[in-house]
Simulated scan of single mutants.
Amino acid sequence: MVREYQARLAARPLFTQAVTTSILFAVGDLTAQQLVEKRGIEKHDFTRTGRMALYGGVVFGPAAATWFKFLSRHVNLRSPNATILARVACDQGIFAPTFIGVFLSSMAVLEGGSPKEKLEKSYTDTLLTNWMIWPFVQMVNFKLVPLHHRLLFVNVISIGWNSYLSFVNSS
Rank of each mutant, 00 (worst) to 15 (best):
T49I: 01
L128K: 15
A63E: 00
L35R: 12
E117A: 07
T98I: 12
A65F: 09
G61C: 05
R73Y: 05
W134P: 05
A65H: 13
V75L: 08
P13G: 08
D125C: 08
E4I: 13
E117D: 09
K43A: 13
L71F: 09
P115Y: 02
R48Y: 05
T129F: 08
H148N: 12
E117F: 01
L30H: 13
V156S: 09
V137F: 05
L54N: 09
L104E: 00
G50Q: 10
P97R: 12
W161Q: 04
A26K: 15
V59A: 02
V88M: 02
A86C: 07
L54T: 13
I133R: 14
G61F: 09
T83A: 08
S163F: 12
F68P: 04
P135F: 06
A89N: 01
M139S: 06
R78V: 04
V156N: 06
F103I: 07
A82G: 07
K69Q: 15
L104W: 02
T66K: 13
E42T: 13
L144T: 04
Q17M: 07
K121D: 12
F68C: 10
E120S: 02
D45S: 07
H149R: 13
V27E: 13
V75R: 07
W161P: 00
F142T: 03
I84R: 10
V59T: 02
S79K: 01
R39Q: 13
T31G: 03
T21Y: 07
D91P: 14
T126H: 13
T124F: 11
V168S: 12
F25R: 11
T47E: 06
R39Y: 05
G28A: 09
G101E: 00
A108M: 00
F99I: 00
M132Q: 13
S105W: 00
R87A: 04
S105R: 00
D45Q: 07
F167S: 12
F46A: 08
V36P: 03
I23S: 15
P115K: 03
V154T: 13
G40R: 14
N81E: 09
S22E: 10
L127K: 07
T21I: 05
D45L: 01
F153C: 08
S105D: 05
N169C: 08
M139K: 01
Q17D: 15
T31S: 13
G101L: 00
V2E: 10
N155P: 03
A18M: 04
L110C: 11
L14H: 12
H44F: 12
S122D: 11
S166W: 00
A86W: 09
N155F: 02
V2D: 10
G56D: 08
L9P: 11
Y123R: 04
Y164P: 04
G113C: 06
L151G: 10
Q34L: 11
T124Y: 15
L151M: 09
G57A: 03
A89K: 06
P115C: 02
A96W: 03
E42C: 05
F60C: 00
S105I: 00
W134T: 10
R8N: 14
L24G: 15
F99N: 00
Q17W: 07
R8V: 01
I157S: 15
P115E: 02
L151S: 08
L9T: 11
T129V: 14
R150Y: 06
S170M: 04
T16M: 03
L85G: 08
A82D: 10
R78L: 04
E117W: 02
W67N: 07
I23L: 15
G101P: 00
M52R: 06
T129M: 12
P115S: 03
L14A: 11
A7H: 14
I133N: 13
